[in-house]
Amino acid sequence: MIELMLEIAQKNALITAFVFAGALLACSNWLSARFTRGHIHGSAIAIALGLGLAYLGGRITGGSAGLADIGVFAGVGVLGGAMFRDFAIVATAYGAEPEALKQAGWVGALSVVIGVVLSFVMGALVAVAFGYSDPVAITTIGAGAATYIVGPVTGTALGASSEVIALSVAAGLTKSILVMIGTPLVAKRIGLNNPHSALIYGGLMGTTSGVAAGLAATDPRLVPYGAMTATFYTGVGCLLGPSILYFAVRAILPG
């Protein structure tokens, strides 16, 4: 009986994923109301639980797709994949105020460039502090601190070792997970409560998944603004990483 149920769940993976997401949200909303009196958003709890389950999935299967590596939950990988995520992000733009976007124009663009450079510098400094002296490795790890896509793209372009590329991915992953969890916690203190600051937040953070989840858990109405600028971040990062930023690292490093 149970085998048959599992088989059906696995054959209809995407549908199973709908049930999974719904059930997880229901649990989280209950936890939120029961134990935090709604202070911590249900979706924030659900995202944290999702990350916890992803860790467990990784522990159990040794794979790289979290919970989605477990057969029954394969649909979670489809539902949570880039295609559905980006499709839903685009949908959130429906009803966004064009005015708020127009006003943010140049600051939004500026925040993307500043965001890439800032994260890069922080990552590169940490790499130097840990004893790295090869400009290619330092650049790759710095690029990884931007996003886990910029890291490998930069590393591959510069011919970094696969170990360094893996580290850059890990740095980017840490960043995106931390943004998911941290955003609702610091939102008030950093004034993240209007479309304008959401645009800047998206540009500075840049990790689409982190920004997407962070804003969803903070205030879903802000999602389109943050997501809009964040989607330019990875592209700008891939542009600057193997070029200007690498040259800068090489120029600054002695020898």
């Binding site: 916890g52 940490v126 580290l167 840490t174 997407a212």
Partner: peptide, 29 residues
């Protein structure tokens, strides 16, 4: 559907790799 999708996205992250990659990568992030 955006929020449920984002939750599914969280559940498919390679959290294990991020956690077990050592202090340097985590500190950089």
């Amino acid at each position: 559907m955006y929020i449920p999708i984002v939750i599914a996205m969280a559940a498919k992250q390679n959290v294990l790799a991020a956690v077990s990659s050592g202090p340097m990568a985590i500190l950089a992030g």
